[in-house]
Design a protein around this nucleic acid. Structure first.
Length: 280
DNA sequence: ACGGATTCCTGATGGC
DNA sequence: TGCCATCAGGAATCCG
């Protein structure tokens, strides 16, 4: 499930494969995947060249010519795949819902096709015309990026969540952007902080440790191309950070720090694994 | 107002 | 073996 390191990996792979290419054709086989009307979606994108691919929190952002943008949230199972342009709507690869035919500048032959693939169909693609992206992003009210926020920002933003449990606060993208279930559990264990603790009780010293561990783990995960659990895979291959998970999915196994068994609970509706003995 | 529950989806898994 | 129920989870939306 794509979180910050997986979104970053996908954005980098996508940038390497698509920047400089022009979208010559768009086909949508499952219209709900496109947040707006699919014809409006296609006409906003067709003819535009991809100039940059980046990440905003867990969103993937493609900058296009004529101040247009394509913003994608991968949710649980969204991914990208390359292939040849489908002959019709019945000719899509399995679980692929949108196809973008890409050409070299001043050419007309489709060089490659970018597919949006999403088994569970939770992801959404949105196209924006000039001036439309900023208000949308503004409305998302995303907090500072988990990778670049300062210790003070971690402290101020998390304590403002008051009685919310620390794990739930970390998953709230309006507090800090980028954490998902995996990296929240991994970070909390590394920082020896309880997911059940009230976020409002976090001291500056604790927030500082939390941030240090978060940045260490997120960067390490990026160097490993993310964590491949269930089906995550970036265009240039899967990740391997799952091999270094200490908390996620490790319920019942001994805590790597004290040896007591890790317990599984539910916090904020999410499966949470932690060490009741180490994490205070 | 704020936090918890529900909803969207499908493949994997577990129990009988 | 087969079938059905349950679970997984990001974030918008609904609810108390």
């Amino acid at each position: 499930m794509p979180e910050l390191p997986e979104a970053e990996t996908m954005a980098r792979d996508l940038a390497a494969k698509t920047v400089g290419l022009t979208i010559s054709k768009v086909l949508v086989s499952y219209p709900p995947i496109v947040a707006s009307d699919k014809d409006a979606f296609s006409s906003l994108l067709t003819g535009q060249t991809i100039t940059q691919v980046g990440r905003v929190g867990k969103w993937i952002l493609l900058d296009l010519t004529q101040n247009r943008n394509l913003l994608i949230h991968l949710k649980m199972t969204g991914q990208f795949e390359f292939g040849s342009f489908p002959k019709d709507l019945g000719d899509f690869p399995p679980h692929c819902h949108a196809a973008f035919g890409l050409i070299e500048p001043n050419d007309s032959i489709i060089k490659t096709t970018l597919f949006y693939k999403d088994t569970r169909k939770f992801g959404r693609l949105r196209a924006f015309g000039p001036g439309e992206l900023a208000p949308f992003l503004n409305n998302l009210n995303l907090g500072p990026d988990a990778l670049t926020a300062s210790a003070e920002e971690y402290h101020v933003r998390l304590t403002k969540a008051a009685r919310k449990k620390l794990k739930a606060a970390l998953l709230d993208q309006t507090i800090l952007a980028g954490f998902g279930n995996i990296y929240a559990d991994e970070t909390l264990l590394a920082a020896r902080l309880s997911p059940l603790k009230a976020a409002g009780d976090l001291t500056l010293a604790e927030a500082t440790i939390l941030r240090t561990e978060a940045i260490r783990i997120l960067n390490l995960a990026i160097t490993h191309r993310g964590s491949t659990v269930s089906s995550y895979k970036a265009p240039d291959g899967a990740g391997s950070y799952q091999d270094q998970h200490l908390a996620y999915g490790k319920q019942g196994q001994p805590c790597p720090f004290c040896g007591q068994p890790l317990t599984k609970t539910t916090v904020g509706g999410r499966t949470t694994v932690h060490c009741p003995s180490c994490q205070k």
